[in-house]
Structures are given as structure tokens and as C-alpha cells.
């Protein structure tokens, strides 16, 4: 199992607790959404799950799929996500470098991934020239190329209109590699609803939404 959080609590300033008593299991192949308004601690939770932030209290256990080492993690962010002047193909290929691959293989794998997200026709276009929805598809392609154990998406549809948002969220859930555990943070209920499991972050605690 890639990531387990037990009794995780976090405060930045020692007074206000952003997270409180979080228990979370992210199993391979599952898709989990965390919904909550802005400032509710979603990004903090993702950072802790991704190993970027050490929680003030509690325990984070993580392992790669084969049980050895830490899990390979990929991120999809709301913005600041692409190298604007590089082609769509090259941006996607970066995912393979993260996994320690070579550029030559990366380009091959990236072409496949672009086809999977429906961007094959735009492979040679520079990333800045893609629309917002296309750019997020490209981020998904890059995440596919990385073949991560853990895929963390922080507001992946934050800058998209409602229809495109749902479309992108659905794509993210559909094309993710079979062994990948997906954790999506969003403030948008309809985006969250495409995931198997939806949890709400309320007052620093995770609960099933009503």
C-alpha cells in the first residue's frame, strides 16, 4: 500500500491546527477526492501524503508498489505546471525523466501518453499555445508517463470552466495507471464526484460528505 496516514495533525504556527486527527489509506488503484473550501488544509494534506511536509503529529507510512523504497510520486497542480516554450511532447516526456529514464525512451512513451489523453495531434505545439483544458490534459499525460505509485492532483481543474473540469477529472480517473493511488484535492463537488471515494475536509478532519 503506497501511503497510510495515522493520527496526523498539523499546525504551521503552533496555535491554529490546520489538520487534526487524520486517518487515511491510499491503496494502489484507488481514486480518492478531498473536497473543502479554500484554506481548509487540502494542500497541506497532499504535501504530507506526498512526503514534502512532515506533520506536527502522527505517522505517515509509505512504500513503493513493490514494497521497497519510497513511492514514486507525481504531481498535477493548478498552474505553473508546464514549460511554456517546450512542445507538448517534450513536456509530457519530462515525466519519464523523473522516473530516471532517458530522453530517447521518454519521447516514445510520451507520444503514447499524448494519444491516451487525446492530444496526439498537438504533440509539436508549444505548451503555451494550448488551451487551459489541453494544458491540464498534458499534465495528466506527463503524470502517466511517470508511472507513479502515488498521483497527487491539487486543484487540477481550478482554472477551468465547469464542463471542462468534469471532463478533465473524468479523464484523470480513467487513464491513470492501474496500480496508481490517486488523491485529488478540489473545492468542486462535481469534480470530486468522479472519484470512487469522496472525503470532505471539515475543521481539519476528514469525513464522508452528507
Amino acid at each position: 500500500m503506497p501511503v497510510t496516514l495515522r493520527g496526523v495533525a498539523h499546525t504551521y504556527d503552533g496555535q491554529h491546527w490546520v489538520l487534526w486527527a487524520i486517518d487515511l489509506d491510499l491503496e494502489p488503484g484507488t481514486a480518492t477526492a478531498v473536497v473543502g473550501p479554500s484554506g481548509s488544509g487540502k494542500s497541506t494534506l497532499l504535501a504530507i501524503a506526498g512526503g514534502l511536509l512532515k506533520p506536527t503529529r502522527g505517522e505517515v507510512r509509505s512504500a513503493a508498489r513493490d514494497g521497497r523504497g519510497s513511492p514514486r510520486t507525481a504531481w498535477i497542480l493548478q498552474s505553473m505546471n508546464l514549460l511554456p516554450r517546450r512542445s507538448a511532447l517534450e513536456n509530457a516526456a519530462l515525466g519519464h525523466l523523473v522516473a530516471g529514464g532517458s530522453w530517447r525512451e521518454a519521447l516514445t512513451v510520451a507520444r503514447e501518453a499524448l494519444a491516451n489523453v487525446g492530444l496526439d495531434a498537438l504533440a509539436d505545439r508549444p505548451a503555451y499555445s494550448l488551451s487551459g483544458g489541453e494544458q491540464q490534459r498534458l499534465c495528466i499525460a506527463r503524470a502517466l508517463v511517470a508511472e507513479p505509485d502515488l498521483l497527487l492532483a491539487d486543484e487540477p481543474t481550478g482554472q477551468l470552466d465547469q464542463r471542462t473540469s468534469v471532463e478533465i477529472a473524468r479523464l484523470l480517473v480513467d487513464v491513470r495507471p492501474s496500480g496508481t493511488a490517486l488523491l485529488v484535492a478540489t473545492h468542486d463537488q462535481t469534480v470530486a464526484s468522479v472519484c470512487q471515494r469522496v472525503l470532505a475536509l471539515v475543521d481539519g478532519q476528514l469525513m464522508r460528505p452528507p
Partner: peptide, 21 residues
């Protein structure tokens, strides 16, 4: 973030960026 970039790719990446701009 366990497996990471090959050193050669780290070195070639700036060249690809220069060529792309």
C-alpha cells in the same frame, strides 16, 4: 521522489531549454 533524474538528463535539460527558446 525516490528514483530520480539521471545526471546526463540533468545536464542535457538546460540545452533543450536553450534550443526551445
Amino acid at each position: 521522489m525516490s528514483p530520480s533524474w539521471q545526471l546526463t538528463e540533468l545536464c542535457l535539460e538546460p540545452l533543450r531549454n536553450l534550443r526551445a527558446t
